[in-house]
Amino acid sequence: MIGIFHYLALSAVLFCIGLYGVLTRRNGIAVLMSIELMFNAANINFVAFSYYFKGIHFISGEVFPLFVIAVAASEAAVGLAIILSLYRNKKTVNVDEANQLRG
């Protein structure tokens, strides 16, 4: 029987992979993909909690992932646009190069 803990474990693993990616990858696109992984980890949590605690007829928990997916899509669009303009300016997608805000 697959219980809630399986889902939580899956989401934790996904989250950790995403976090590791965000912290270590230098490629902007890879960083963005890692962020997507973290989003999805949260989405899995939402759905799982909703299903196990509220039952199948209450979909309040399922609404949030929809929101998150929408936001993630727009975020990806903006993020890719930034990376694109970064590439245009610096001919690279290495995020370490984009340190102009540095004090």
Partner: peptide, 17 residues
């Protein structure tokens, strides 16, 4: 104290973590 601001976003994220 502005030398803390390295400009590497991943470092910030690591600190947040």
């Amino acid at each position: 104290i502005r030398s803390i601001q390295t400009g590497f976003v991943q470092q910030y994220a690591f600190i947040i973590y």
